[in-house]
Write a protein that binds this DNA or RNA. Structure first.
Lengths: 173, 173
DNA sequence: TGCAGATCATCTATTTTATAGACGATATTA
DNA sequence: TAATATCGTCTATAAAATAGATGATCTGCA
């Protein structure tokens, strides 16, 4: 089939960024969902647990804002987690309107276990890049996404340069 | 040295990748939605139009598979576009079960216009990276996402090295 | 003190979106 | 020709997001 070479100048067509992001996220969530095996709320609940684990004593509303979920969505995600005994809602003694979310002992164990699974998924997805490239990729991803607080990007500027150098050495030939 | 420093080894906590992706995609879609100003189906319809534009004569099912949508979802996205007179469904004369989707004249115009808007959004989002870094980032993103057919990644291996070198020069100091 | 207004979490209802299954039309194979 | 498979649509259902109302509590102020 003689297919004329199609338009090389269009390499970076609009929507390509969104498409790649959407596809990658879809794959990610599918794999994570599978790896999380029955955690009610799937990858989002896992994210909630991660946040709770690292920044305790958050009100629900602050958690919701941080993750970018609606507060009512968070409510039923927490319902699910609480139903499984993975988190507890503790009334803030200083402000009895708000709840502190804390992991139960069981929740801590579950989180550790699930973290491994999720990390394996992430590792698998990034396997198409070299190890250092993967780190740099993530650094940039965090920067582009404006994700700075809560999760720290893996590398600082100096390390970035170092990895760039290595990547350059191995890839350019 | 006791542990004033909190867990630097944990920099790359599980779920961080998914979170950054989700946040970035949310921002992207919100901005695109706004920029697309009334296109029914929003960013997804736009993507459909892009695909249709570049690879004509696709059956609906092949389009759906390529984008990763359910065929029934595609049906109502196309309904919307057809309702606005942006695309037409043409029965394949060789297989009267399937429809070829083609842009109308009006659709071509709309696509061109919307493409500019979307590109502006993408450009804005990537503005946190240097220009060459942005290209390299996209190249890697495409590779990780496994997006190769349909949209070509912006750079080949040799160019990658070149940009890496430049990025290194400007960033390492 | 008591009242007005704001905030936190929940609940309810609505809307939107995704998924599953059946269907009619057509194609392919044996 | 009969049996089976495919394409696109439709209908019904399920899952999720969103908006608004509610009850409990807090704050500030007269």
């Amino acid at each position: 089939m003689s297919k004329a070479e199609p338009k090389d100048h269009e390499f970076l067509s609009a929507a390509s960024l969104g498409w790649a992001l959407a596809k990658l996220l879809r794959d990610y969530q599918k794999q994570v969902e599978a790896a999380l095996n029955g955690l009610p709320g799937g990858s989002r609940s896992f994210l909630v647990m991660s946040i709770v684990d690292r920044e305790r004593c958050q009100s629900q509303i602050s958690i919701a804002e941080k993750i970018g979920l609606d507060k009512t969505t968070l409510t039923y995600l927490l319902d699910g987690l609480e139903g499984q005994g993975l988190i507890k809602r503790v009334t803030d003694p200083n402000d009895r309107r708000s709840r502190h979310i804390v992991l139960t002992e069981q929740g801590v164990k579950a989180l550790a276990q699930h973290s491994k699974a999720v990390q394996a998924v992430e590792h698998g997805l990034l396997a198409r890049l070299g190890g250092d490239e993967a780190k740099l990729f993530q650094t940039w991803l965090f920067r582009v996404a404006g994700v700075g607080e809560g999760f720290k990007p893996p590398l600082d500027e100096a390390e970035t340069a170092e990895i760039c150098r290595a990547s350059l050495a191995s890839e350019s030939r």
